[in-house]
Write a protein that binds this DNA or RNA. Sequence first.
RNA 1: GGGGAAUUAGCUCAGUUGGCUAGAGCGCUUGGCUGGCAGCCAAGAGGUCAUCGGUUCGAAUCCGAUAUUCUCCA
Length: 873
Amino acid sequence: MNSISIRQTFFDFFESKSHFIEKSAPMVVKNDPTLMFTNAGMNQFKDIFLGNSPAKNPRVANTQKCLRVSGKHNDLEEVGHDTYHHTMFEMLGNWSFGDYFKKEAIAWAWELLTEVYKIDSKSLYVTVFEGSREENLEPDDEAREYWKQFVPEERILYGSKKDNFWEMGDTGPCGPCSEIHVDIRSYEEKNKIPGQQLVNTDHPLVIEIWNLVFIQFNRLSNGSLQPLKAKHVDTGMGFERLCMVLQGKLSNYDTDIFQPYIRKLSELTGKTYGKNEEADIAMRVISDHLRAVSFAIADGELPSNNKAGYVIRRILRRAVRYGYTFLDFREPFIHELVPVMVENMGAFFPELPAQKELIMRVIAEEEGTFLKTLATGITKFENYIRNNPENKIIEGSFAFELFDTYGFPVDLTQLMAREKGFTVDMQGFESGMKQQKERSRAAATMETQDWIELNPGNMETIFLGYESLQAEVKPLRYRKVTSKGKTFYQLVLDKTPFYAESGGQVGDRGTLKSGEITLRILDTQKENNLSVHIVDKIPGQWPDSFIATVDENKRKLTENNHSATHLMHSALRKVLGTHVQQKGSLVDEKRLRFDFSHFAKVTPEEIEKIEQLVNERIRANIQQEEHRELSMEDAQQMGAIALFGEKYGEKVRVIAFDKDYSAELCGGTHVHSTGQIGLFKIVSEGAIAAGIRRIEAVTGRVAEDFVNGKIHTLNQVREILKNPKDIVKALQQLQDENETLNKQIHQLQKAQAGSMIDKLKSRVQKIGNLNFITVKLGIDPQMAKDLAFEMKKQMDNLFLVIGHHADGKAGITLMISDNLVNEKQFHAGNIIRELASEIEGGGGGQPHFATAGGKNVDGLDKAIEKAIEFVKK
RNA sequence: GGGGAAUUAGCUCAGUUGGCUAGAGCGCUUGGCUGGCAGCCAAGAGGUCAUCGGUUCGAAUCCGAUAUUCUCCA
């Protein structure tokens, strides 16, 4: 059975058990401060488990693209070294939200594995939770009883809290789980050691295949467990592992999911998979990471230098490094595997073929820059070796510096060190690493307390903000959050006119009032589907309700920019082409920022065209059309633009301004008619990554100010130039004139210096073989310096002392010919320090040239006398 | 969010503890030579040493801030 039909069979099976087949949520998580990437199938249903949203379907099944590279689940460094760790993988799952529980979940799992997929039931083992005294929990005998109907008791094992009690995080929904393990060893091996002994021992051929989680508790922040009213089932089965088992392979990488990449890599390198362990690891690493990175880019997360984007960059770089070290790649190569991936997964994940070119470009660009970084690291390393040839040990601090500052992986440093007969002080490296981690942790502590219930209410806050900016609202619950010594409160209301930040539009600000009490809402944020109002203080006594008022000015200005973003998005697609896709958007009261895929600089002519189109639509004063509660199909029928990497519900909202011109799926707030926007003006255009451009623009009053500012500057220039007819020509002339004048000055100075040189030459005193000159001039230090160097060129055996003064400051410049320095051991720097005391200053320099400066101009004569005395001695 | 670093000619980069009035290679311009694949020789142009401020007799070099980029940690 190939992987495509294995996936389909899973869906068909659960559909037959009345499950709704949900789409995979994007791999990149938005609106959840605790999570950067989807790392488990349950992420997209988190709100249902937390009781923030009602379940739309009580039974759901899906495959979810997951990424485990940060936080609690971090498998990155394992990938490639064994046959079953992955960064990106698919998680198949079935879900019950307060519907069926242990009995059905267990029966169906068994049925699917043994009767549909036909796995030999004798090689399957199951585990159940053994209970925990510290938590005061009994063993999960309920699950055990159900299993006994299918599985002989000797293959039902008890598991510890670590393996068989699943928790989402430090707090939140949790419960016992029951795992199904499969033993795919050979007959002989099985006879030698019974599978029971190898369950949960990290044996690569006795592996967990499916985890059935029975969510029945809520973990509070004080650590105690609270039973849930509605119990849920959350299961997860690793798709890649399942394919391995069903295809009779011993490694995930031998399945038809990964083999195409490995074949392509063999072709590119001429190396055969399975011949050399290191090359094999590299090929596994690359085929795994390619998938992770490609999906991330397709979901709109580009490699960058911080946050989620940085995680993506690191994954890609790990792949490049393995290719560099073990497959001898010196040129970008990973991007060449993208077409293979599109061919293999494109049918089920349409975001891949749709963005193939972008993915390839971005990866190729990243590969190129990292290969460059490696080259700088190598130079740095070689310099170190050259400067420290004898100790044969690379200090930990240097290895850490290479790693920390130049991104040079430490295992590569070790490898190169070995080639030069050096070793790396790993202890020193680790201690640097430890310090770094401690610093970061200390800086990022955030403490969130439990919710405190004020009033019972609905699960999801009702948003009133599309129609009204003021409403009477009831506080439902709040909690205290402390972050870096600052304390604030998150407040949930039954309904709200406040827009919570999402879709690029910033959250609303405003006030909550009740009698004497006024709470300022500093921001409104979204945590998954929950609208959270941020307040800096809470009242001693909570009133039953507040009058909530949104800061209207800020909201209106923001709406201008948001609607203008839609108009511009359409204009971009008209002017540049339909390959333009939104890759990021930020809309606040000051400006709009829009990132989109496009492969060339947007020319000034195109910018002008875009502005024209948008302003035309503004002047047409088009009425906003809002369609709420549309099905996805109807929305697409309308031609509404949807974004990749955005999670949409069953019902979507479409905002259109003349639906043939602009229609977009959007939850944001907008102007009633485009005329309100006033003026639209693009302020900047530039690249932010390979294939991605960013435009910033302003609207309304801000746009007027921007244009007026430009005009004002121009007027000022005009005025300075005395109102010429052609301002550009006038400036050009001015510049030319400036150039000729500068040349003239230069020549004059030369001439002047010439006459001064003559003057100096005429003052030569022969003292021994010395050509001794002293002079006092009203020139600045720079000129004195020029003069001194010119004299040095023209006269041998020179000992020149120039006392100079300008702007009330005194200075001495001393020049001695090189031969005198050598013969008589003169040191101008030392001599001048003596002289400088006379002008109440300090100085210094090299043996042949030195300068000094001071406050006392009257002391110059004395300083010169001192010089004469010195020379005469 | 926290740390470390980088920014010098059109490009790639040197510039050692502050001081020989900012250098190299490639590219560019001009002239000369040359029947040859990166031709050779000579001369020349090109730099507010990222920006702003400070310390100093003197700053590309030291200190601070800003911007941009790289990099590690969370």
